[in-house]
C-alpha cells in the first residue's frame, strides 16, 4: 500500500478542536445531571426482606388457605407510607407452612381461594379465569404462565413472620 501522508488541513484541525471543546462543555454540564438521573439504578436494591409480624399464630393455621392482611413500612424517596400486603396461608400435608402471594402471575389481578363455585379446591383469578392448584401452581390451559409467588417466612414464638414475595419459575 502507498504511504500517503494524510495531512490534516487547518479546517479539519479546527473542526477536531471545536468538537473536543464542545464535548468538554457538554460533558461538564451533563455529567452531574446524568449521575443524578441514574442514581436510583446505582443504589443497591439488595435490601434484605424484613420480616413482619402478620398477626397470625402458627397454631391457627389450618390446611385450608386463609387470607391474612398486614402492613409494611415503606420509604419511597421522600415519601413514607404503610402499604398493605396480603397472602393466602395454609399448612400442607407435611405440616409445612405455605404463604402464597395473591397476585396473579398473568396480569396482576388478585386471586382468591375457591373464588369460583365451579372450580373447588383451586385459586381462581376473576379477571381472565386464571386458575391455580392449592400449592399455587398454575393449571395448564389457563392464562397464567407461572405459579403464584411464595413469601419468605419464619416463625418466632409461635407467630408467623413474612418477608418478601419470591416469584417461582414457570411450570
Amino acid at each position: 500500500m502507498s504511504e500517503d501522508k494524510q495531512q490534516v488541513s487547518r479546517r479539519q484541525f479546527l473542526n477536531y478542536t471545536l468538537t473536543g471543546v464542545g464535548g468538554f462543555m457538554a460533558a461538564g454540564m451533563l455529567a452531574p445531571m446524568l449521575r443524578m438521573a441514574i442514581d436510583p439504578v446505582l443504589q443497591s436494591t439488595s435490601s434484605e426482606g424484613e420480616f413482619v409480624n402478620v398477626g397470625l399464630a402458627v397454631e391457627d393455621i389450618t390446611t385450608t388457605p386463609q387470607r391474612v392482611d398486614w402492613q409494611i413500612e415503606q420509604v419511597d424517596g421522600w415519601y413514607q407510607s404503610k402499604p398493605g400486603r396480603s397472602a393466602w396461608v395454609y399448612k400442607d400435608d407435611n405440616g409445612n407452612i405455605i404463604a402464597l402471594s395473591p397476585v396473579c402471575t398473568h396480569l396482576g389481578c388478585v386471586v382468591s381461594w375457591e373464588g369460583n363455585d365451579s372450580h373447588p379446591n383451586e385459586f381462581f383469578c376473576p379477571c381472565h379465569d386464571g386458575r391455580y392448584t392449592k400449592d399455587g401452581v398454575n393449571i395448564p390451559g389457563t392464562p397464567p404462565l407461572a405459579p403464584l409467588a411464595t413469601y419468605e417466612q419464619k416463625v418466632e414464638n409461635g407467630i408467623l413472620y413474612l418477608g418478601k414475595a419470591i416469584s417461582r419459575k414457570g411450570a
Binding site: M29, P32, M33, R35, M36, D39, L42, G77, W78, Y79
Partner: peptide
C-alpha cells in the same frame, strides 16, 4: 412534599446537590 423532595434531592441523591446548585 415540595420541601421534602428538595431536601431528599439535596441530601440523599448523588450529585443532587450539584444539579440544584447549578
Amino acid at each position: 412534599n415540595a420541601w421534602k423532595s428538595v431536601y431528599y434531592l439535596q441530601t440523599e441523591v448523588a450529585h443532587g446537590q450539584i444539579v440544584r446548585g447549578m
